Amino acid sequence: MQNNKHISPENILHITSGEITANQLKKQLPQDDILPFNEAMCEGETCAEIFSDAFYRLRAAAYEIPLQEYLQKSPGNFLQSCLKNYDTLYLYFDYDMFCAVNVITLLAFLEQAEYPGQIKFQLLEADGTVKVLDTWPVILGNYKKCYTKVLLDRQRFVTGNELLDKGIALYLDYKKKNNRITRYIAAHGSAEQMQLVQELLLKFADYGLTDMAAAKFIAAVRDKKR
């Protein structure tokens, strides 16, 4: 990406849900600036100041990786240093909990940074492609409050956006020790590990579970039974 000093109406930054989506979008827009939002905010802990030093340390701990390794993929440094160079942002995310929590964090950061430009949300099919199902403009205003209420206080917050509100409800359940996923694991405790992981990914697709998250849930439930 180039750090353009001159801002024009065509100066757009595309922010995707991750590297797979970013790679797909690059095939369609090879000349455009594309940034993967490499976060999984539904995992681990966070803090009030997004992309601060404390935030970075907490996120590295959430992924159980060294801080420097985390910083190599984090979008934070680029967003903090180059955001002002873009007057329009296109956000590409699908409709599961994983994406909803990341979107809330990203929009909260844009409020924190007092981003003045236009924001356009592109709702994607949840199949790794960049097939756009719907699009709408985003108006900032309540997302920092939402981020604080949901991710820090673990309390309900109504955004008025159906997809985000569904994601919030799933997230609040997800962060409980006794949730839909752990209850399913407890009821199917004799299943082989890989089989159970695959079942969880399919049955709880609305959460956007990763293999690693599913395996952690299984380990936690089985350790508790010992």
Rank of each mutant, 00 (worst) to 15 (best):
M1N: 08
Q2C: 03
Q2K: 14
N3Y: 15
I7E: 12
S8N: 05
S8H: 14
E10T: 07
N11D: 14
L13G: 00
H14P: 03
I15A: 06
G18N: 09
N23K: 14
L25T: 00
K27T: 09
L29K: 07
L29Y: 14
L29C: 11
I34K: 07
L35Q: 02
N38Y: 04
A40T: 00
M41G: 06
C42E: 10
E43Y: 08
G44N: 06
C47D: 09
F51R: 04
S52E: 05
A54P: 02
R57P: 04
R59S: 03
Y63R: 11
I65G: 04
I65Y: 05
E69A: 00
L71F: 06
Q72N: 13
K73F: 12
S74D: 10
P75A: 10
N77R: 15
F78C: 07
F78Q: 08
Q80D: 01
Q80S: 14
S81L: 08
L83R: 05
K84E: 13
Y86Q: 10
Y92I: 02
Y92W: 02
F93A: 01
D94M: 04
M97K: 06
C99R: 06
V103W: 06
T105D: 04
L106M: 05
E111G: 10
E111M: 01
A113G: 04
E114C: 01
G117T: 08
I119R: 09
K120V: 14
Q122N: 13
E125Q: 14
A126D: 12
G128Y: 07
V130A: 00
K131T: 12
V132N: 10
L133A: 04
T135M: 14
I139V: 15
L140C: 11
G141F: 04
C146F: 03
L152P: 06
D153I: 09
R154P: 09
R154L: 06
R154C: 04
V158A: 05
G160F: 04
A169V: 11
L172T: 11
L172F: 00
K175G: 03
K175M: 07
K177Q: 15
N178Y: 05
R180V: 01
I181G: 06
A187Y: 04
H188Q: 11
G189Y: 08
A191S: 15
E192D: 15
E192N: 13
Q193P: 09
Q193N: 14
Q193R: 14
M194T: 07
V197D: 03
E199P: 05
L200S: 03
L202D: 13
F204S: 03
Y207K: 03
G208T: 05
T210V: 10
A213N: 04
K216Q: 15
K216F: 08
F217I: 02
I218Q: 00
A220G: 10
A220K: 15
K224N: 15
